[in-house]
Design a protein around this nucleic acid. Structure first.
Lengths: 231, 231
DNA sequence: GTCTATATACTGATAGAC
DNA sequence: GTCTATCAGTATATAGAC
């Protein structure tokens, strides 16, 4: 367990850490190899290119993350045949991504921040990277949620699921915003507290009635008019 | 109103557009000035530096955005003295940021994406930039929301407000994720539809009962045990 | 105000010795 | 597997002519 870390593993560790804190493009191969105590050419040697190093980081993390999420999801429904509670499904999705203690590789919060950071970089291969690692599991959760709130349409469930992704990503990518805004009252570093606050908000959100239809000519959103001066 | 655009304004326009799509660090001063049909040295001349150009972009947008949000918030409560409905407050916050038709400067969706992209870049001056432009307005909305759901504690309201920020940011920063995941069923380009889906989810989320307290020794979240093997 | 020319530094990639 | 040396490309910054 103390183990000699191979050069390859040291590069993976240090790269995940640096990419997460400063982004992909902003960390050079030079800095990466120097920090890992490895040679400048070692990234090319072990991974082929800087791009493929990122693919390796994703694969190393997502394999156990997806496994944990799907296992938790399966546990929700076990025993009797009834549909699992919404709260259980949400927890099964969020906790493996947030729980630092279950650091299958090196800390869920750090990796989730890496993902969020990368979204802002518009890498040309990012869409492929995300789809390859997340779509299958995400769709499994969409299906499970839909069964728990069968009155909703599929479009609505998908939209609300993407809101969950937003909540998860934003909380991890910009923890200082809420800490500062709350003058320290909210502590994003407290993972368990964080999940505890997220779950009721999200579960009740999913239980909200469908959004009003937007058929042409339909009445505008119920709101005391008055604001109809503009336009 | 048709107006000759000054070089300075052309740079602001093009910089906002390019930063929003590809990030701050990843757009060079060369590309910026070339796209604006201006000289390479003009950014240094007009703004002092690339950093200060970003400050100018924020200021140009946030002044009318904050004004619109606070005006909409004030409109919610007007007339009688009763507290505005939660849905109205949420709409007052979201719509000015999203509504492209109310492009006070150049399109709310684009600027919101710019903000989201920047969060991932870890610029050393970003926290100052955000606090200066957003904190006052955000706190005004937190107070208004708290009045609409007075049973909640302040910490809970602040957390839930940050979830709203997450939903807003994520939807704009990575529209392709939900489009692809839904195989085109969800269209993030449809701003009005988007707001329509967000509002009931968020409003019901705020109406959820408080998160269970996390006092030491308290029972774990109500969930059929069984998962207590791990650890 | 605009433009050219250039200084200085850093990027990822790669060949080839050891 | 590791290392040095170097390629070609691009970044921001800036001096100085016009």
């Amino acid at each position: 367990m103390v183990a000699k870390t191979s050069t390859r593993d040291r590069i993976l560790d240090i790269a995940e850490r640096l990419f997460a804190s400063r982004g992909y493009k902003n960390v050079s191969v030079r800095e990466l190899t120097a920090s890992a105590g490895a040679n400048l050419a070692s990234i090319r040697y072990y991974f082929g290119s800087k791009d493929q190093l990122l693919y390796a980081i994703y694969e190393r993390y997502c394999t156990p993350l997806n496994k944990a999420r799907l296992q938790r999801l399966a546990d929700c429904a076990e025993g009797d045949g009834r549909a699992p509670r919404l709260e259980q499904i949400i927890a099964a999705f969020l906790e493996p991504a947030l729980d630092v203690s279950v650091d299958a590789v090196g800390g869920g919060a750090r990796f989730t921040r890496l993902r969020a950071v990368l979204i802002g970089e518009n890498l040309d291969f990012l869409e492929d990277l995300i789809a390859r690692n997340f779509d299958a599991t995400s769709l499994a959760f969409v299906e499970a949620i839909h069964k728990a709130v069968p009155a909703l349409g599929r479009e609505e469930v998908l939209w609300r699921f993407s809101f969950v992704l937003g909540i998860l990503h934003y909380t991890l990518i910009d923890p200082n915003r809420i800490r500062r805004l709350s003058r320290g009252l909210c502590d994003p570093g407290d993972t368990h507290g964080l999940i505890r606050f997220m779950i009721p908000f999200i579960a009740e959100g999913f239980r909200a009635p469908s959004a009003p239809s937007l058929a042409q000519g339909a009445a505008p959103r119920a709101r005391r008019t008055k604001k109809e001066k503009a336009k």
